[in-house]
């Protein structure tokens, strides 16, 4: 196990883009986890100048490191506390979407027939409804129903339960090709049942796809949450990056030239999304045993090893 991890890290660290992606995602997660240690303020604290007046729309040169917003709150503090909300929503919604999508995709692809038809028609229906209006309606109505659940949970569930469709189709198509492969009929010939075949033969084949897609779906979920929050559907008591953007535009940050108000949350979203996408691509490459090369290593007489430092 230790050796495998070490080998994994060695392959991973060779890939520069993957390292960059990992760095981007990891810094965002660390900032979110250690938010209280990274700032002396609370996100709701109002910054005051030497004369005791609130610092509104102060540029980074007046109040560091990122200035203040219209109410005098510290942007940096808001940003790292907002990371907690954005990442929580992104990760949980992403995992829910992947779980539902994989379940639908594997079941439909493997069993085929009327099960496939039923599940795929459900998928089609969800696919043809425009996402954004549907989510707006769902989030708005669910909020008004006084369900006594946190608005954030509603957003997580709505994103998670709507964004699995493309995953389901992707995985279904992959399962369709795998189940026709001869090693699946060999597994049947061995006397294996459906559960065993799915667990031992289908799942390992699509696992790289699932893992890579999870990371990509997380980035989609973060973007969608930002979109919803930007449109005013976020939880105002727990501001995410999208909520910050929403505030910035509501309070005329653009016309006031307060770029330090809207650029940081926007760049933070780009930071994490880019990280997820880079990481997703590299993970797929690495977890797919058919694409690995490390089996060629250690057998020096089989391949020519380039001199150290040679490109």
């Amino acid at each position: 196990m230790r050796r495998n991890l070490l080998e994994f890290w060695r392959t991973f660290s060779r890939n520069k883009l993957g390292l960059l992606g990992g760095f981007l995602v990891l810094t965002a997660i660390l900032a979110a986890v250690f938010a209280p240690a990274l700032t002396p303020h609370q996100p709701t604290d109002v910054m005051r100048g030497a004369n005791g007046r609130g610092l509104t729309f102060s540029p980074p040169s007046v109040h560091g490191p990122l200035g203040t917003d219209d109410a005098g709150r510290d942007i940096w503090t808001e940003l790292i506390y907002g990371a907690r909300v954005s990442l929580t929503v992104g990760f949980t919604a992403g995992f829910i979407a992947m779980f539902v999508g994989s379940l639908f995709g594997i079941t439909a692809g493997y069993f085929g027939g009327w099960i496939d038809n039923l599940l795929m028609r459900v998928t089609d229906v969800l696919l043809v409804i425009p996402d954004l209006p549907l989510m707006l309606v769902l989030v708005a109505t669910l909020r008004q129903m006084n369900l006594h659940v946190s608005p954030l949970l509603i957003i997580i569930l709505v994103i998670g339960l709507l964004y699995w469709t493309s995953t389901a189709r992707l995985i279904r198509s992959q399962v369709l090709t795998i189940k026709e492969r001869q090693f699946v009929s060999r597994a049947r010939a061995i006397g294996a049942g459906h559960g065993h075949i799915i667990r031992k033969h289908v799942l390992p084949q699509i696992m790289p796809l699932i893992v890579a897609n999870t990371v990509l779906t997380i980035s989609t979920a973060i973007l969608v949450e930002s979109g919803l929050a930007f449109l005013g559907l976020g939880d105002p008591t727990k501001p995410s990056w999208g909520t910050m953007l929403n505030f910035a535009f509501d309070r005329n940050a653009v016309t006031n030239g307060a770029w330090w108000f809207y650029l940081p949350p926007g760049l933070a979203i780009v930071w994490v999304s880019l990280g997820c996408i880079l990481l997703g691509n590299v993970l797929e490459e690495m977890l797919n045993p058919r694409l690995t090369t490390h089996h060629l290593e250690g057998d020096e007489n089989m391949i020519a090893i380039p001199a150290p430092g040679a490109k």
Binding site: F183, S185, I190, G191, K200, H201
Partner: peptide
């Protein structure tokens, strides 16, 4: 199947799971 009658498939490459170690595949049954 397999316990009493087993089969050697045509084209061994396709009948082996490419992402499973040979030993694991043999012990599977």
């Amino acid at each position: 199947r397999w316990k009493e009658m087993a089969i050697v498939f045509q084209g061994a490459m396709n009948a082996l799971n490419p992402v499973m170690k040979i030993g694991v595949q043999i012990s599977e049954a």
